[in-house]
Amino acid sequence: MENPAASKGNGAGSNSADLKKFYSDMLLIRRFEEKAGQLYGMGLIGGFCHLYIGQEAVVVGMQAAARPDDQVITAYRDHGHMLACGMDPKGVMAELTGRQSGYSKGKGGSMHMFSEEKRFYGGHGIVGAQIPLGTGLAFSNKYRGNDNVTLTYFGDGAANQGQVYESFNMAELWKLPVIYIIENNQYAMGTSVERASSQADFSKRGSSFNIPGETIDGMDVEAVFDAGRRAVAHCRAGKGPIILEMKTYRYRGHSMSDPAKYRTREEVQEVREKRDPIEHLGNKLMSQGLATAEDLKAIDQDIRNVVNHASDFAKESPEPDRAELYTDVLA
């Protein structure tokens, strides 16, 4: 495995070591996604490709608050989640290029990747479908009587699907240990939250089911981490589900083919300059004397190497054998 940065944390409080790890975890996602965008432009990645650039603090902070045996499930903007779960960047990138050594042997692609080992349950292409699935994973924990928690991620767009509320109802009714993380990046493809949501405060979306909710600055990894720890503790204590709305922003289009005409370039630029989660943390590390500019540069160089290796691996791996067409349909 070649993922020096990302792995789930142990739920300890954030200290200088944590902050550095947050920094490199987020940077790994950023650089990985930049590379994926580049490979897409070269025609090496096909189909839909949804980049996580800008939202890195959400998954890094949350996963640091979880245990390695907790489960994770999300939708199709999933590369960052996989890296944050400790999945191998080579296997993820090779799946993006549709190769045999990808996590799904090249049969899943960007939106459909899984790792039983890393407790990552996808990677789901249908908006909202992962929410009952995550609730079901939490059900399996409750059924078995273990204290695992399921982190179920979805966006502000998915939050308007009916099955979200079906899941909320059952989760609270049966006190299932599930954290619903709503990554509010303000646009459901091209439709802004204001144009699609009668209740734009997503932390309140569980209120009619008595599910507590909280809104967090999803561009601040420490704030996310703190909220994540509270939420994990809530679930592990058997208090049922909890909702965390993460205010975040994606810099790129909805997918690679989205020109993002629904917002101004200035709007994006302003977030990049004022709220970027990685830059914010980098500045903090330097201002508190926890790292020098050179240290950060070295981290970046290490990560670029990892990503370049992943990219080379993904380009060099063979396509799946023709016989794979008919495997894995049934057991």
Binding site: Q71, Y121, G136, N141
Partner: peptide, 13 residues
């Protein structure tokens, strides 16, 4: 839709 999906998730689990 909710309990069918919940069932699939439980099976994943």
């Amino acid at each position: 839709q909710g309990f069918a999906g919940l069932g699939v998730g439980a099976a994943f689990g």
